[in-house]
Design a protein around this nucleic acid. Structure first.
Length: 226
DNA sequence: GCGACAG
DNA sequence: ATCTTGTCGC
């Protein structure tokens, strides 16, 4: 029974490698033309149990004025456990349910977690971007893999993150005296543009507004749900 | 062999 | 990721 799980993991690894071949790390549109950005976040009702319920929120913002254009939620039973480097298999199903409910078409998406700062370049943001063929960026709060220097303690200081000597993304200080975040392309965007987009999406807090608000809305959604 | 390991 | 108020430091 240990072997059957390892076989599944090997199968998913192969799937990630296959999906990574569809990645486009070039700008589909110039980053200056990205006006509406969606932030995606997921929470769970009982994180300590294995079938549990996942709740996803997608908040679409206008980056010129940070006004909310749309906000959607979705709930779904989640069976897959959290396994490092396989986060997408846990969170993507609920996220796609919320994605289907969108009436607007955001220019780009920002997800909690990694893009190509991943052993097989298939962090959740990259996976989402390939599946939906959209422009996506990963912005995670902690390290998964990679080598880097800690950026200076000033807003927007950053350092490249390397895997096997290759730049896969950046560690970016979005706020003074706050821990830096990990930024990397998901799909249909370049390394440099993913960094610029996150900087544009940051207002007064550590996290970019779209994902920060989705996280906030999920908190109150869970409160009212009881 | 041992430690590290998004959410 | 979640349970939670105040508290310390820039």
């Amino acid at each position: 029974m240990e072997d059957i799980d390892n076989q599944l993991i090997e199968k998913l690894k192969a799937q990630q490698i296959s999906l990574s071949k569809k990645l486009k790390l070039k700008d589909r549109i110039p980053v200056q033309q990205i006006k509406t950005v969606a932030g995606i976040d997921v929470t769970f009702t009982d994180i300590w149990k294995n079938p549990t319920t996942g709740i996803a929120c997608i908040t679409v913002l206008d980056l010129d004025n940070f006004k909310i254009l749309e906000k959607v939620f979705a709930e779904k039973k989640v069976d897959f456990p959290y396994i490092p480097t396989f986060l997408a298999y846990r969170e993507l199903p609920v996220i796609l349910e919320a994605y289907k409910k969108l009436n607007t078409t955001p220019d780009a998406f920002i997800l909690d977690g990694m893009g190509i700062i991943h052993p097989r370049k298939m962090g959740i943001a990259a996976h989402f971007g390939v599946i939906t063929d959209s422009i996506s960026v990963g912005c995670g709060k902690s390290k998964l893999v990679g080598d880097f220097k800690i950026p200076e303690n000033k807003k927007f200081a950053y350092e490249p993150v390397f895997i096997d000597g290759e730049i896969r993304g950046y560690i970016l200080r979005t706020k003074k005296n706050a821990n830096p975040v990990f930024v990397s392309p998901g799909n249909n965007i370049s390394l440099e543009s993913s960094l610029k987009l996150v900087m544009k999406a940051v207002k007064n807090y550590k996290l970019p507004e779209p994902t920060r608000l989705s996280h906030l809305f999920l908190q109150e959604y869970r409160r009212k749900r009881r």
